[in-house]
Design a binder for these strands. Structure first.
Lengths: 192, 192
DNA sequence: AGGCGATCTTGACGGTGTAAAGTTTTGCTT
DNA sequence: AAGCAAAACTTTACACCGTCAAGATCGCCT
């Protein structure tokens, strides 16, 4: 519809799109700014004007990641029973869904120090995800210890499944897998 | 004592030592082979002869990491009550000790795809760590689901603490911290 | 119309990994 | 003991990377 607004169209969005594709294909550790520029069809120095440097691009990408992260959890929660217990499970399953669907983005957000986590936009996006969890736990009558327990369990499962450990769990049929994960997450619920 | 056996002494060990220091100082993502060589006082191409390429060095380093990992757990377990329950907690606390003491090594082992995880030596070291956990869980009367629950909880806590999330937990005095972590780990124990 | 600033390109520099060729040392063999 | 082959290491070279500085191009505003 609207290419070529200035020189290119909105290069910023195009670069973010290309960067996400590069990230998914080559992983965080092989991520290359020049390759992103090539994929977007611009010169190797073009990204600098919009993002400053590679860290700037990865920071913006991570912030976008946290927004998608919340959206993935929201999908699960919308399909689940509205009681606090079921919502907590749904949030955990969404956490794991996201890690398996976008492993490279997940690693950028949780297992890399390349993004600038002090950046206001990234902070805001990450805090929103944390606040969501905290609210869910509070609704189920839990406190800070329960937040830690559930977060650690969801995060641990997501990270181990994503990186191919816990093979027996990963190879289960989706329904069986969800059932097993539900049991594992439930162990960390607020004490009754 | 015994420098200069061939040209240098055993460069392999010296390179591993330098690589670990570099890893700790600059992190996995800024790890540089040439910098390691410089630190060891040899030419930038010297490592190739002993490790093939950068992946080879990182693979050897990760394998060594898994051995240290088991040793760190063993320290905790030796100081703990010998009953299976307490040993399981000690293993989890050792897991977390290791992540906090050597964050870069932990990331290399669990959050990077730079090592070649198909390498026999690395596989053996990693499998030994897994087998240890499995044996501990079995001794406590648990099965595969309990392995997953405990591993995920220990791993999630270790990863989140290491990367500075879960600040409230991290700022506790060591004794209080251990007490809280013990409670969190206990939630994932085999059902009675 | 004309200039101005944002956008993008080009070129250069230092750093990185690795392959190939050259040099030095070791240790084995005769 | 002498010499030779292989191992250990260095040197050189190349492609790629991130970033900086300078030049070109375009839209917009007065």
């Amino acid at each position: 519809m609207e290419d070529r607004k200035y020189h290119h169209g909105d290069l910023r969005a195009a670069l973010l799109h290309a960067a996400e594709a590069e990230l998914a294909e080559r992983g965080v550790e092989a991520f290359s700014l020049r390759q992103v520029a090539k994929r977007a069809g611009v010169s190797h120095a073009a990204p600098a004007h919009h993002f400053g440097d590679a860290q700037g691009l990865l920071t913006a990408l991570a912030a976008e990641g946290f927004r998608r992260f919340l959206a993935t959890q929201a999908e699960r929660e919308a399909r689940a029973n509205p009681d606090p217990h079921a919502q907590l499970v749904a949030g955990g399953l969404g956490y794991i869904d996201f890690a398996l669907a976008r492993p490279a983005l997940f690693r950028l957000m949780f297992g890399s120090d390349r993004p600038a986590f002090g950046d206001p936009a990234l902070c805001a996006a990450a805090d929103a995800a944390y606040d969501h969890l905290q609210a869910q736990v509070a609704a189920a009558g839990g406190g800070v210890a329960d937040v830690a327990a559930l977060w650690a369990q969801a995060h641990g499962l997501a990270d181990l499944l994503m990186s191919g450990r816990l093979k027996p769990l990963c190879d289960l049929a989706p329904a069986d897998r969800d059932a097993t994960l539900t049991v594992l997450l439930s162990r960390c619920f607020p004490a009754a």
